[in-house]
Simulated assay, not measured.
Amino acid sequence: MNKQETYDYLDRAGIRYEVTDHPAVYNMAELEQVSLPYPDRDGKNLFVRDDKKKNFYLITVAGEKRVDLKEFRKVHGLRPLSFASPAQLMERMGLVPGAVTPLGLLQDEDKKITLYLDRFFAGGLIGVHPNDNTATIWLAAEDLVRVIEDHGNPVEWIDI
């Protein structure tokens, strides 16, 4: 699902969103160089897997937050976690590093990747890539959750 297909999907779902186009960014440091309308609402995404390479998770938190994977796994009762490989990212969500986004879950055919979403975003906007790192879209976090859950992926709100 490319950027335009993502916009079309959200339009069909009746989701309101705002688009900020920008040069390609591959990490949060590069994104800091981009002028964003809601810089404190941008999501940072960590695509991780368990030590058996069986279960995959997308952890989306506010951009300035750090995630201690050892602590995270303990709190959520998961097996040891590490970052998924670029090949696993492509296989599971059809994305390349730098374009990771909760909207990539719309390409998870097995609907098994769990989204853990920072409660910081509840009741407000979240900025995510539209399956392409040359834009950020801003939408209500609850709308993002609805789209992901309607697709069939589990979502859990978390405190980081």
Rank of each mutant, 00 (worst) to 15 (best):
P154I: 07
R12G: 00
D51T: 12
L103E: 05
K52A: 12
G63M: 07
L144A: 04
R146I: 02
R16C: 11
E149V: 13
W157E: 04
K65G: 09
R146P: 00
D51F: 06
L58H: 07
F120Q: 02
I59T: 03
D108M: 14
P37R: 15
V34S: 01
V100G: 04
Q4S: 11
Q107C: 10
M90A: 14
F72R: 11
S85E: 13
S35F: 07
L58W: 08
M90W: 13
Y17W: 14
I148G: 00
I59R: 02
V155I: 11
G63V: 05
E142P: 08
L89P: 02
G104I: 09
M90R: 14
V100E: 01
T114A: 10
L139C: 01
T6H: 05
A135R: 08
V75C: 02
L103W: 11
W138D: 00
A84D: 03
L139K: 02
G123E: 04
Q107F: 02
T20I: 04
R41E: 03
T101A: 09
K111P: 04
K44G: 04
N153D: 05
F47W: 03
G63L: 08
D118W: 10
L81Q: 08
D51S: 15
R41F: 06
T101K: 10
N55C: 02
I158Y: 10
M93V: 11
I113Y: 03
G127V: 11
M93H: 04
F47V: 01
R146G: 01
Y38K: 05
V61L: 11
R12F: 07
P86C: 09
W157D: 03
A140D: 15
L58I: 06
I15M: 09
A87H: 14
H76A: 07
Y116C: 01
P23H: 05
D150N: 15
Y17T: 05
E18V: 15
D110Q: 14
V67K: 10
G124S: 15
G14F: 10
A29T: 14
V48R: 01
P154F: 08
I160G: 04
D143N: 12
Y116H: 02
L103H: 10
R119Q: 13
T20K: 14
L115R: 06
E91P: 02
T114C: 12
E5V: 05
K111V: 07
K70T: 14
R79M: 10
E18S: 13
D50H: 13
I59K: 01
H129I: 03
N131K: 12
S85F: 09
L103N: 08
S82C: 08
Y38S: 00
T114D: 04
Q107E: 13
M1Y: 05
E142I: 12
P130M: 08
L144E: 01
E109L: 12
S35L: 13
